[in-house]
């Protein structure tokens, strides 16, 4: 009798997980069993090979908590949480999507001694917490810039590109805003900050810039010499590659830099709220540079670049909803198409 119930339960839960599995696509998944029964379900945009050290450290401190770590794109993370999938913690690099999740009531409030010490700009309504600060940077292959004076502002960059069409034609890379949520976020924030963005986009369009979905591919191509310059690459990824690849450099611009905050929230559907809170606290401690080991991702504290630039991190707040609005997105992409994809 009991076995029958158990079997029924297993089938039901399998069906349920299949049903939710259909709603969103995952990229990778790894389980870390703990000594206790609790399984902390985490959905994240951070790759396993980057994030695993943190998970192992967390489990060393909390051996009873098992972890089920799922990676997905930011759009899929958003879709999963909106679809009601049961996760205890959602980590994403898409600030805007994470913000709308919290705004629309898909997150639950959490407060602890650690969240209270977070700076105001790194949390919203006790529901959304930033644990990294990652600037958008320009990565160049130095071989392509031999004999040229390196630009210090976007205006100088525009002039440099315009004056050397032979050298840079087909050698520029940036995000495809239709494919990349992060690229779209960086682009909209930059367009808001400076008119130079549109001039730069026009110049890049005229020089047949190549469009990418992801930072890592862009950096690969710069390292390989395919590209001379990759615009708006995630600084944390670039930094890791600088050590490996000769000739790869970050081009520091003095006018401004956008800083993306990677954010965490505890979904309203969370079951293991205590474990989720513990992991969130551990994440935030690392984010504030109070962790015991080298953080896996750039912490909030070492925002050196962001501190020196006139623009700090992108603000967590309702303004993030503006460019996600359907009408705004359409008109922004129209303008971007017109500038970038010139015929």
């Amino acid at each position: 009798m009991r076995l029958a119930y158990l079997a029924c339960g297993l089938i039901l839960s399998a069906l349920a997980s299949m049903a939710t599995a259909q709603d969103y696509e995952i990229e990778d998944r790894r389980a870390y069993p703990g000594t206790g029964a609790a399984i902390l379900r985490v959905i994240s945009t951070a790759d396993l090979d980057v994030f695993e050290p943190f998970l192992l450290r967390f489990q060393a401190d909390n051996p009873e908590v098992g972890i089920d770590y799922v990676t997905a794109s930011s759009a899929e993370v958003n879709r999963a949480i909106r679809g009601g999938a049961v996760f205890d913690l959602a980590l994403s690099s898409a600030m805007d999507l994470q913000f709308t999740l919290a705004n629309d009531g898909y997150a639950q409030s959490y407060r602890s001694g650690v969240t209270d010490t977070l700076p105001d700009w790194a949390r919203w309504n006790d529901q959304l917490f930033a644990f990294t600060a990652e600037p958008a940077v320009i990565v160049i292959n130095q071989a392509h810039f031999v004999g040229l004076v390196l630009p210090h502002t976007r205006a100088e960059l525009v002039t440099l590109l315009r004056d050397n069409p032979d050298r840079f034609s087909g050698r520029l890379g940036t995000y495809d805003l239709r494919a990349s949520g992060l690229g779209y976020l960086f682009a909209t924030q930059e367009a808001r900050s400076s008119d130079a963005y549109w001039r730069l986009t026009e110049v890049m369009g005229r020089l047949d810039a190549r469009l990418y979905c992801c930072s890592s591919q862009m950096i690969d191509d710069v390292a390989a010499g395919e590209l001379a310059l990759a615009y708006n690459v995630l600084g944390s990824y670039a930094q890791q590659r600088l050590d490996r690849d000769e000739g790869l450099t970050i081009l520091p611009l003095e006018d401004f830099a956008n800083v993306m905050l990677r954010t965490a929230l505890i979904p309203a559907t969370a079951v293991e709220v205590d474990a989720a809170g513990a992991m969130l606290d551990a994440l935030l401690r690392e984010g504030m540079g109070q962790g015991t080991a080298e953080p896996v991702l750039p912490p909030l504290q070492s925002r050196g670049e962001a501190d020196q630039s006139p623009f700090g991190p992108i603000r967590l707040g309702p303004a993030l909803m503006v460019y996600l609005d359907r009408l705004n997105r359409e008109s922004f992409l129209e303008a971007w198409d017109a500038a970038m994809v010139q015929q």
Binding site: R315, G317, P318, A319, M321, V322, D325, L327, N328, S331
Partner: peptide, 8 residues
């Protein structure tokens, strides 16, 4: 177009 300032 939703003005950025309106939400900010």
């Amino acid at each position: 177009e939703l003005p950025y300032a309106a939400f900010s």
